[in-house]
């Protein structure tokens, strides 16, 4: 059981009308690993994430969480799945009308029968874990971008989920804050043993925190490379992978395409 993949994605395809995002994506996520889904803009990273967290249906394929298909799951199974995952959205998506403490306490009040004193203590503990001690009465609008991300992580971790998803973890943050977030992710992964799936195109993060990378490509319509960051960076023969790691535009192609 322990060696079974916690999430298995099989032959996933997604499209919006005539626009095909990807045609065949299959991979497995092992327990407690940090998996990074990387690729250039428009390659379907965010679509893949939305399908995996049950917000969007694929046009084909299956996603299994501990062996249970979540694509055709009924509302009850889907709710069970949602309680076992935590998601940090790109914009943090903290509820602006609630304080940071209330944001984190919300799932605890909703899904547990704990008294408010215990919940307050858990909230303080989560805030401590993300280095936001004392910020429970602040509103999201009073925090900086990096603090909002950390508060978002604390909310995603509120129920100690088995899997944490991060959409563009360090997008829009300064390098120091981004590095702090990477450290936080590593610490949290080691302490809680949660599986982490991170969608990003930030090279620094990819190399520092990931156990394994999956690289998507728009033109290939799926995964073009998979492996640990060191090998991918140093040994990749595929020019698309090498270009990504060397931060280079493909010869002629992308620059012309972009213009």
């Amino acid at each position: 059981m322990e060696n079974d993949p916690i999430i298995a994605v099989e032959n996933l395809a997604a499209s919006f009308g005539d626009n095909t995002v990807f045609t065949d994506v299959s991979f497995q996520v092992r327990r407690a690993e940090v998996l990074v889904v990387a690729g250039e803009s428009g390659c379907g990273k965010s679509t893949l994430l939305k399908i995996m967290i049950g917000l969007q249906k694929p046009s084909f394929g299956r996603v299994y969480f501990q062996g249970v298909d979540i694509i055709d799951a009924d509302e009850k199974q889907l709710n069970h799945y949602r309680r076992n995952i935590g998601v940090l959205f790109q914009s943090s998506a903290l509820f602006s009308s609630m304080t940071i403490g209330e944001n984190i306490a919300l799932p605890l009040y909703e899904y547990t029968d704990l008294d408010s004193e215990t919940i307050e203590l858990i909230v303080r503990m989560k805030l401590g874990m993300v280095n936001l001690t004392g910020y429970e009465n602040h509103y999201p609008s009073e925090l900086s971008g990096g603090m909002k991300k950390r508060a978002g992580i604390a909310r995603a971790m509120a129920l100690d989920p088995a899997v944490l998803f991060f959409d563009e973890l360090s997008a829009g943050l300064d390098p120091v804050t981004a590095a702090e977030l990477d450290d936080l992710i590593l610490r949290t992964n080691q302490a809680l043993g949660a599986t982490m799936i991170i969608v990003t195109h930030e090279l620094e993060s990819i190399c520092k925190i990931s156990d394994r990378i999956i690289m998507l490509d728009k033109e290939a319509g799926g995964i073009i490379a998979e492996g640990n960051p060191k090998d991918m960076k140093e040994k990749a023969t595929d020019p698309r992978v090498r270009n990504f790691f060397l931060r280079q535009a493909p010869q002629g192609g992308a620059s012309r395409r972009a213009i």
């Binding site: 304080t99 403490g101 203590l121 303080r124 503990m125 805030l127 401590g128 874990m129 001690t133 004392g134 910020y135 429970e136 009465n137 602040h138 009073e142 610490r187 949290t188 080691q190 302490a191 809680l192 043993g193």
Partner: peptide, 24 residues
Amino acid sequence: EEIERLFGVIDQDALSHPPLKTKE
């Protein structure tokens, strides 16, 4: 080992730290 690590990340000071801003 992993359980010891988990206990290790609970910051005792954070639990008793007063909020930086009083509740409205």
